[in-house]
């Protein structure tokens, strides 16, 4: 860790004006500072803004989540458990109880990749950490790396769970910036690595995420998050699927929302799969063609070849499980 200046934000506008690195739960930021991966000169603690941004509002038309709501709070919230099961499950299966108690939803969506080469500066080649230096993972240990949304510059997986649910559910991000408030479709928050893997989001300097809105929708009750991982708990996804289905009485898909985690460089919305499902009677065949569509463009490396098949199977299982839900 390097020396840095520390300020506590008294109110949101002055936090934004300060132009520092925001500190919420610190479970990503402090970790990466200790590893010398992030070296902010100025850290602005936003935890004092929780009166303003720490609320959960489950309204008729939308669910609103403040950026400083802790993961544990949202995961246990009765209305979310009842009406937005995919969100509750994505949070509940993430990290550990201790981390969920500390970590905020705003920080959660901005958590950074677990690529071990990124997290250890003694590896010289990492385009994300040191632009233009190369990518050690490309021909290195890449079992946990992404197969969707990759570029020849970076194959780092976006590791989070909650953001996968938000990506699937047409959520909006609320942002307070130097030029005031604006909203962004959640799918536009994260950027594909392309030739600039070091630029991970579309946020500008000083932009503060203040909350998220998830519109109410008929598919939410029949929704779930399936996370496949090496161990039973406290592990990042090897593959995950956030699915939400609206079925008619013949079990025909009126609408589907699908997000994929553990397999992509950003929280992944599988629109081709959604299209493939729409209008079909939900069954093994329909689920399989949706999964094939979702992974049609998968690009694998030596260590992560299994992820295409695992990702497909995860999605098929999630869809069939959602279809079988009693709602």
């Amino acid at each position: 860790m390097r020396s840095f200046a520390y300020d506590k934000a008294g109110d949101a506008p002055s936090a934004v004006a300060a132009g520092g690195q925001y500190l919420a739960g610190g479970t990503t930021l402090v970790d990466l500072m200790k590893l010398d991966v992030m070296q902010p000169a100025h850290v602005v603690d936003i935890n004092g803004l929780d009166k303003q941004y720490g609320e959960i509002e489950a309204g008729k038309d939308a669910l609103r989540l403040g950026a400083l709501v802790r993961m544990a709070e949202a995961a246990e919230h009765p209305a979310i458990l009842r009406d937005y099961p995919v969100i509750a499950q994505s949070l509940r299966q993430a990290a550990s109880p201790q981390i969920r108690n500390m970590a905020s939803l705003g920080g959660n969506v901005l958590q950074r990749t677990r690529c071990t080469y990124f997290r250890d500066p003694s590896w010289k080649a990492c385009n994300k950490r040191a632009p233009g230096s190369g990518c050690a993972a490309m021909d290195g240990v890449n079992r946990r790396h992404a197969v969707l949304g990759v570029s020849d510059q970076c194959i780092a997986t976006y590791p989070g769970d909650f953001a996968v649910a938000l990506a699937a559910l047409d959520a909006q991000v609320e942002i307070l910036g130097t030029s005031g408030k604006h909203r962004l479709p959640f799918g536009e928050l994260h950027r594909l690595p392309g030739t600039t893997p070091h630029i991970e989001t579309s946020l500008s300097a000083g932009d503060l995420i203040t909350g998220f809105t998830v519109p109410a929708a008929p598919w939410l009750r029949r929704s779930l998050y399936l996370k496949i991982r090496d161990r039973e708990a406290y592990d990042f996804a090897l593959a995950s699927a956030a699915v939400a289905l609206d079925l008619d009485k013949d079990r025909r898909v009126r609408a589907a929302r699908i997000g994929l985690g553990g397999v992509a460089t950003v929280p992944w919305r599988a629109q081709e799969a959604e299209k493939a499902l729409t209008g079909k009677i939900i069954d093994e065949t329909a689920a399989q063609s949706a999964a094939d569509a979702a992974f049609a463009d998968a690009t694998t490396r030596e260590g992560n070849g299994f992820k295409t098949e695992l990702g497909k199977r995860t999605l098929v299982r999630a869809l069939l499980q959602a279809a079988a839900m009693e709602v």
Binding site: R114, D120, V141, R231, E232, A233, D235
Partner: peptide, 28 residues
């Protein structure tokens, strides 16, 4: 679970932390 991953080009360990070097949790 347990395997220390080695980058074969560099002869270096890559998962030298307890988030990536997996051991069972109670649920396992």
């Amino acid at each position: 679970f347990e395997k220390t991953e080695i980058d074969l080009r560099a002869a270096r360990y890559t998962n030298d932390n307890l988030a990536d070097y997996l051991i069972p949790v109670n649920a396992d």
